[in-house]
Simulated assay, not measured.
Amino acid sequence: MTDLNVQTRQREIATEHLLFKLIEYVEGKHPGLLDYLEDSLDHLGDPAPDTTKDDDGVRRIARRMITGVRRDG
């Protein structure tokens, strides 16, 4: 694995962790955030211009993230 791949993976892990914690915190202060985010997923899509485009895949990941915050928060 190249250094760039390792850095990209590490950045993704760190970003996901910080985002989860931020969402947990805000949901604790302002209940309803998770519902609001979940309701927005129909507008989420994959901007890829080629055959890797997968809108449903992006939405599945977002739903799993919301489910994880609900479970852990």
Rank of each mutant, 00 (worst) to 15 (best):
D54P: 04
L19E: 11
T15F: 11
N5H: 09
R60W: 05
P47G: 07
V58I: 14
R11L: 15
T15I: 03
T52C: 04
I23A: 15
L22R: 01
G45Y: 12
E24L: 05
R59G: 05
L33S: 02
D55G: 03
I23V: 15
G45L: 02
E24Y: 01
G68Q: 09
D35E: 08
R11G: 09
D56H: 11
T51C: 08
V58N: 07
T8S: 10
G68T: 08
I13G: 04
R9V: 14
G57H: 02
L22G: 05
I23R: 02
K29M: 13
E38H: 06
D39K: 13
R59K: 14
L22Y: 04
R64K: 07
R63K: 10
P31R: 03
K53H: 13
E16C: 01
Q10N: 13
L19Y: 07
R9F: 15
T52F: 06
D72N: 13
K53F: 00
G28P: 02
T2D: 15
R70K: 15
Q7S: 12
R60N: 13
T2M: 10
H30W: 05
A62E: 05
T67I: 08
H30Y: 13
R11D: 10
Q10S: 12
K29R: 14
E24T: 01
G68C: 08
G45P: 03
D55T: 08
D46L: 07
G28T: 09
D39H: 10
D56Q: 14
E24Q: 10
G32I: 02
R9Q: 14
G73T: 07
H43C: 11
T15D: 09
G68A: 12
I23N: 04
R9Y: 11
R60I: 11
L37D: 03
M65H: 06
D39R: 13
E27G: 06
G28E: 13
R70Q: 03
S40Q: 13
E12C: 02
D54A: 10
L41E: 05
T15V: 04
